Computed example of a mutant assay.
Amino acid sequence: MTRPPTAAQRHVIEAADPVTGRLKGTEAQLAALVKRGLAFRHPRPPRDHFLTPAGHRLRETPGASDDAGAPEPSAPAASGVFAARIGGEEGPEAGPARLREVRGAWQGLLELRRMTRPDGATDLPCAWERTHLVQAAALALEAAGHRPAGAEGGGYRVRPTPQPEAVAVHEPDPGALRACAAALEKAGWQAGEHTEPRTGSRYVLASPRRV
């Protein structure tokens, strides 16, 4: 298990820019945060350091247990620190704390997109999203304000499909289903409505755009 950050490293995390996650600290502190998966160094000059989604989550959870460990830096939305809601999970209704978590995770994912694109653009999904399709699509939906399905049944559900690089989004309300498709397209996905042959129900098939 990765050692928790020291008090000095926690101070660096808590002092990060609230929007971009840009960090200031000594080279040793920043390198240690990168090693723990809580920060990354931007590949282009001035090569500043930024919080990963795990770092954002740690900063925005006062009193979070340091011995929980840090996830791998390449897994922003499927780590033990933040979990995208794919629909159907049990849990409390969305509140201010959850909204902060989602916002921090989404901003971290945009930073991952930025640092892996030569032009620094954030309009297309990154490699992590292509290997964690369900979690990435769910994060995009929740970050856009859509509600995951709960015990009562309403809301979206994101599920894997046999097709490569494609997920299915189910939402019982037709208007909400179309809104989910629009949100995914805005987040850099290709999305189109289809009909399930056996049940006649409508769903959205979505995959990350490459260009």
Rank of each mutant, 00 (worst) to 15 (best):
16 A>P: 13
163 Q>N: 10
126 C>A: 15
129 E>I: 00
194 H>I: 04
156 Y>C: 10
153 G>L: 05
26 T>W: 01
4 P>I: 06
112 L>M: 13
147 R>S: 11
198 R>Y: 07
156 Y>N: 07
185 E>L: 04
141 L>F: 03
169 V>I: 15
11 H>D: 14
173 D>K: 08
111 E>F: 05
62 P>S: 14
158 V>Q: 06
205 L>F: 04
41 R>L: 07
137 A>C: 13
122 T>S: 08
210 R>Q: 12
55 G>L: 00
42 H>L: 05
108 G>K: 01
141 L>Q: 03
184 L>F: 06
195 T>F: 09
143 A>V: 02
158 V>G: 05
99 L>A: 14
70 A>H: 13
55 G>H: 01
9 Q>Y: 01
144 A>I: 02
118 P>T: 08
82 F>M: 10
203 Y>E: 03
119 D>H: 09
9 Q>V: 01
179 A>I: 07
107 Q>T: 15
110 L>Y: 03
23 L>T: 01
43 P>Q: 10
47 R>P: 01
70 A>W: 10
147 R>T: 14
133 L>C: 10
189 W>E: 07
96 P>L: 14
40 F>Q: 06
98 R>F: 07
83 A>D: 08
202 R>F: 02
55 G>S: 02
100 R>W: 02
136 A>D: 02
8 A>F: 07
128 W>I: 02
81 V>P: 01
53 P>W: 00
73 P>N: 04
176 A>C: 07
126 C>F: 03
162 P>E: 12
132 H>Y: 05
71 P>R: 01
207 S>W: 07
182 A>K: 13
159 R>G: 01
138 A>L: 03
129 E>A: 13
172 P>M: 06
20 T>F: 10
137 A>I: 00
141 L>K: 03
14 E>A: 15
29 Q>P: 06
42 H>P: 02
10 R>Q: 15
110 L>S: 08
193 E>F: 03
184 L>N: 05
25 G>M: 11
14 E>C: 06
39 A>I: 03
164 P>A: 12
75 A>Y: 13
196 E>H: 15
186 K>F: 08
105 A>I: 00
2 T>Y: 11
8 A>T: 14
26 T>Y: 00
189 W>K: 04
92 P>S: 03
204 V>G: 06
19 V>K: 14
80 G>L: 12
201 S>A: 14
116 T>R: 13
116 T>K: 06
84 A>D: 00
170 H>L: 09
131 T>P: 01
125 P>C: 08
161 T>Y: 05
53 P>E: 00
168 A>W: 09
106 W>Y: 14
25 G>H: 02
149 A>E: 09
103 R>S: 15
147 R>G: 05
44 R>W: 05
94 A>R: 12
167 V>F: 12
47 R>H: 15
186 K>P: 02
69 G>Y: 04
99 L>P: 03
169 V>P: 09
143 A>G: 06
69 G>S: 10
54 A>P: 01
68 A>D: 08
121 A>N: 08
31 A>W: 00
